[in-house]
Design a protein around this nucleic acid. Structure first.
Length: 583
DNA sequence: CAAAGGACGTA
DNA sequence: CGTACGTCCTTTGA
């Protein structure tokens, strides 16, 4: 690509505890911390650079906090996840990846010592050590903290540029004819990392009174003190325990005791999970009471007054940490309940005065992504329909529910249920798509790494998922050898990872363009939920923002997929409260 | 005091 | 329950 050299310059920016440094074509200067925001604006205007950062979180929090628009960052950590995969993407891992060093040997930051003096002495010694790299060529573990003067900051910034070049070269080698696609993934994943800082900055608007009201319905009134809290709690417990006379001392929070309790009323279950107990709901009133208690207990403990007080700020915004790309399938993650708020609490998520939400979710994103990833022309044809399962059902000569179950079974590896026959038909109708799923499953069984459509590497090793580890139960020699146990778990994991992971990439590419499109309207993305976006926007801009959300999907999907044969659809609505949109 | 397991919320 | 994630509670282990 000849335009690459002629493109905007790469400028590395490092922000340390005592100062910052920017280096690249056209700039080589130290920035005092109080000037970082101003110098960032100046340099952006002068060079319109592509910013290279070790990570958005370590570099751009202040710039984002000043509400500056940040675009075109090359995030070394996110790029590392694409090129090399793995759970960790610290600067040390980035350097190891770029220099071909053993990732297991990346120096780990020393654990904090609470006792003794050796830690302090060691810190002094480390501060005097001027080497950026260890003898083996690894980046020192405390590099950012170590970079306390301009020279050290500059060395760290120059190293960042080196790593950028190495990652770019690695993408060239990996991508072949698809380099451009891999590079686009770096840009959109990097944008997602900046978006995460904006999500942390803006928070999710909450109607505090409504939230209090909903909480009180499950947890009771706000307790005055510890004793009051204990009284309310035991009252809640008593409503269940009155169904089991003589066993009022059972601890409902102890699954073992609950299991015994259930046994005493004739309900014998291997565990007390909700879906196990569901069939017994009407066999004894205790079961029904227990399941209701669990719902209330969930809200009282996890989404109760403490949660409200700790995570909803004085500006009525719910805030938590965001991650752009988790280690496994590459979805965004969020803390403090932003990703798992119980549906009954959704009425409390409410736009601020004069504002509305534009809410949009991608319809049937995973099968549509399968059509892209597999390149199955016939399956792509089905994505032209608003409801993809209708043409699939027609082709299979089955009804819609059957077609849907078959597609989901093929993608996720469901073993129970009556998908068998329809699955066979599916293999005949869409051999290309099904072939991809089968091959990926085999890759997982054999521990061969796989890549998402955007090029992110998914490896088997250092993945802390119990079912994938060698110790997991392994049936021997039977026909279902690879359906159960660790082999099958890896197969399903791989198959799921390329679908879910590729879908996550499309979602982030979409979110990145939405973020730009709504900014001039005064809008901000305030929630990303895997296939759903919540944009907070001034009321008068609602229609325009909704149109932008739809329009950007078409554009982002075409660019991401490299074709417009596969159609993606969004359900978009303008609402005040999150609960108003119910598909 | 940390780790593990059960349970359950979301997609 | 097909796969992920985060958070709470409890018990277990060193």
């Amino acid at each position: 690509m000849s335009d690459k050299a002629a493109g905007p310059p790469f400028v590395a920016l490092v922000v340390g505890p005592a100062g910052a440094y920017a280096v690249g074509a056209g700039v080589d200067e130290a920035w005092p911390l109080p000037d970082v925001v101003r110098r960032f604006v100046d340099t952006s205007a002068r060079l319109q650079p592509r910013w290279v950062v070790w990570s958005a979180a370590s570099t751009l929090r202040e710039v984002v906090g000043a509400r500056l628009p940040v675009s075109r960052t090359w995030d070394l950590a996110e790029a590392h996840r694409i090129v090399h995969g793995g759970w960790w993407a610290t600067p040390g891992h980035v350097v190891a990846g770029c220099r071909g060093l053993d990732e297991a040997a990346v120096p780990a930051p020393r654990a904090h010592r609470l006792h003794g003096f050796d830690g302090d002495l060691f810190d002094v010694a480390a501060g005097d050590d001027t080497a950026l790299l260890t003898a083996e060529g690894h980046l020192r573990a405390d590099a950012l903290g170590w970079a306390t003067d301009d020279d050290r900051l500059r060395r760290l910034a120059v190293l960042a540029l080196e790593c950028r070049d190495a990652q770019g070269a690695a993408l060239d080698r990996l991508g072949g004819p698809h380099v451009a696609r891999l590079e686009r993934t770096v840009w959109s994943e990097s944008a997602a990392a900046v978006l995460c800082l904006e999500l942390e900055r803006d928070g999710l608007p909450v109607d505090r009174l409504a939230a209090e009201d909903l909480i009180s319905g499950s947890a009771g009134p706000r307790p005055r003190d510890e004793a009051d809290a204990a009284r309310i709690r035991s009252e809640r417990d008593a409503a269940v325990l009155r169904h089991a006379p003589g066993r009022e001392r059972t601890d409902l929070r102890n699954p073992g005791q609950v299991r015994e309790l259930l046994q005493s009323v004739g309900v014998d279950v291997p565990n007390t999970r909700a879906w196990v107990l569901e069939p017994y709901r009407h066999t004894h009133p205790l079961v029904d009471a227990l399941l209701g208690w669990r719902k209330d207990e969930r809200i009282a403990t996890t989404y109760g007054y403490r949660w409200l007080d700790e995570h909803v700020g004085p500006d009525d915004r719910l805030r938590g940490g965001w991650t752009a790309c988790d280690g496994a399938a590459g979805r965004m993650t969020a803390q403090n309940g932003l990703h798992n708020l119980p549906a009954p609490l959704r009425p409390a998520v409410c736009a601020a005065a004069g504002h509305v939400f534009v809410r949009a979710d991608l319809g049937q994103i995973e099968p549509r992504v399968l059509a892209v990833v597999s390149g199955d022309r016939a399956f792509a044809e089905a994505t032209r329909a608003d409801d993809l399962y209708a043409p699939v059902a027609a082709k299979l000569g089955a009804d819609r529910p059957r077609a849907k179950v078959a597609v989901l079974a093929a993608m996720y590896g469901q073993r129970s249920g009556a998908a068998g026959e329809a699955l066979k038909d599916l293999e005949r109708a869409y051999p290309v798509a099904m072939g991809l799923l089968d091959r990926t499953y085999a890759d997982g069984v054999a521990r061969r790494p796989v890549r998402t459509w955007g090029g992110r590497l998914i490896r088997f090793g250092g993945v802390p998922t119990a079912a994938l580890e060698p110790g997991a139960p392994e049936p021997s020699g039977s026909a279902e050898f690879s359906a159960t146990g660790a082999d099958g778990a890896r197969g399903r994991y791989a198959r799921n990872a390329i679908i879910q992971g590729s879908a996550a990439e499309l979602f982030k590419a979409w979110a990145a363009t939405v973020r730009h499109a709504v900014r001039p309207l005064g809008g901000h993305i305030v929630l990303c939920l895997h296939d759903e976006l919540l944009v907070h926007v001034p009321q008068e801009a609602a229609a325009e923002a909704a149109a932008a959300v739809e329009h950007t999907l078409t554009a982002a999907a075409r660019t991401w997929a490299g074709t417009d044969e596969v159609r993606f659809v969004a359900d978009t609505s303008v609402i005040r409260r999150w609960s108003e949109a119910k598909p």
